[in-house]
Amino acid sequence: MVKSNKISLFQGKKGNLIKISSISLEGVMRRRLLDLGFVPGAIVEVIKKSPLGDPIAFRVSQTTIALRKEESMKIEGELVNHD
């Protein structure tokens, strides 16, 4: 049985590492995300939620970037094991 561990960045729990596989966004937002290092293959760590639950901060290419739910829901990837 193949266990599917595909989740969106939004679903990630604090401390999760997610390897990006697809970004279902278009236009400027997609290009901006690419510039910041949200490229397929990159590994993103879920850092923390803001006090009101949204946005969520992620660690990507050695920097911390906050994304809103609308966008982080559309970035998908695979859960990576810590070890």
Binding site: G27, M29, L33, P55, T63, T64, R68, E71
Partner: peptide, 11 residues
Amino acid sequence: VPTHYTLELPP
């Protein structure tokens, strides 16, 4: 009008 959001949290 379209909207997009990213915010960097520097150290």
